[in-house]
Design a binder for these strands. Sequence first.
DNA 1: TTCATACTTTTGTGATCACAATAGATCCAC
DNA 2: GTGGATCTATTGTGATCACAAAAGTATGAA
Lengths: 237, 237
Amino acid sequence: MDKNSPIEFTLAERDASVTITQWVYVTLRNAVMYGQILPGRALTIRELAKELDVSPMPVREALRQLAAENALEIQGNRRVMVPKMTAMKFNELCQARMALESHAAERALPYIDAERLRALQQIDALIDDVQRDGNHGPVSALNQEFHRTLYSANPHQVTLPLIESLWLQLGPFMKLASAHLEVSSQVDRHTEAMDAIEKKDAIALQLAIKSDIREGFNFASTPELLQRFIDESNRHS
Amino acid sequence: MDKNSPIEFTLAERDASVTITQWVYVTLRNAVMYGQILPGRALTIRELAKELDVSPMPVREALRQLAAENALEIQGNRRVMVPKMTAMKFNELCQARMALESHAAERALPYIDAERLRALQQIDALIDDVQRDGNHGPVSALNQEFHRTLYSANPHQVTLPLIESLWLQLGPFMKLASAHLEVSSQVDRHTEAMDAIEKKDAIALQLAIKSDIREGFNFASTPELLQRFIDESNRHS
DNA sequence: TTCATACTTTTGTGATCACAATAGATCCAC
DNA sequence: GTGGATCTATTGTGATCACAAAAGTATGAA
């Protein structure tokens, strides 16, 4: 596993009002989330700094923050890398998502007003549109947007940062796995969720969210399939 | 809210094998956890660096990490402080603990062997001992140790860092609130939990954990009591 | 006394440098 | 060729410095 594989960053615009550290953080976060950094690939501060054309300092801080969010793993040698996925860990992450997000949905339900529901409907319609156009790239980002919009209705939200940490840990594997998969139009349970919201039915909402998460992962429905995708996603590293 | 109030750090031994940044991180984390830094108190890098007798660099990194774990809050002015507690946030944190920890307990249950159970019994016995001696200081740390030992039985654990984040957010308020409280011998549900473990009864274990958490907070069982403790904990700041 | 203005100090940010530890490459004995 | 020791290059860590922005303080007129 050498450090030959280049990293293709999608460099965002660097707004002057934003600190360099924050910009580096966002850039690296996206690179992790969208599988641009292969799991196991050793990252060095100076390499990233050179690649992003900044000094090592902001990179150091961004890496530490991402490690604190469990998006990156600090090895004993103090080297930093995207953690490799295992079947058991994948399973735990899915179960954790279902437990935490169904809870967040329930806690958000009382705060969802007509405007918020309309925003959810808009996002869902947008997902349908891009699915119909065969443009499967932005679907997962839009799907996240749907969930985030739902949970953040709760003005005293404390679980969203934890949920985002889980997304970050699942992100790279999902991207790499779906790359080796003819993307069938993913079905989601957003309609069921919105119906439950209209009826203020907490139980139905939790069920819809859990089903949505579970079915989002059922491209790896059997242990053999899952292991195949894990091998695929780790093969390059 | 000036920066007059001094911070009494309990300086841990600085092992040579540990980086300064890690040592600073642990020191600051304990200071937050044990309410030594009052909520709302503005923290500056240079002040902490001087206090801990290190250069500003490790402090910067430790602060950023703690902020990523939601233990500290970065204000718009880029100032850092311990977040203040509100009644609604307290409620959300409790509910999140119950949801997340009962899930973690359930996922850990299949992995708990005789040795692990014995470790749990030892910790519980130790809690009883110090309670009987009227020494209520280390109880909350031991209580955390009990929960951590339980959840970490799962070798593929992914929720423990999230749980620790919730503990960190509740820690300062709990300490400051309990300071204005004649500490009655807290009863816990550890016995019920261990019984459920022996019977491999997941439902009973989840109930025990949820009850343990809920009753740990019932010093603020009514909204009026809770608000009184919040006012107390914010009064100094 | 009160409030806006100018001045001074402090602060976070980011760059650069020194150093010890680690990793990678080279060389040599077998 | 192959494995192990040595040497070189690279890396993370931590200190120091420069600078612009923010906070704090003094000053002035009303």
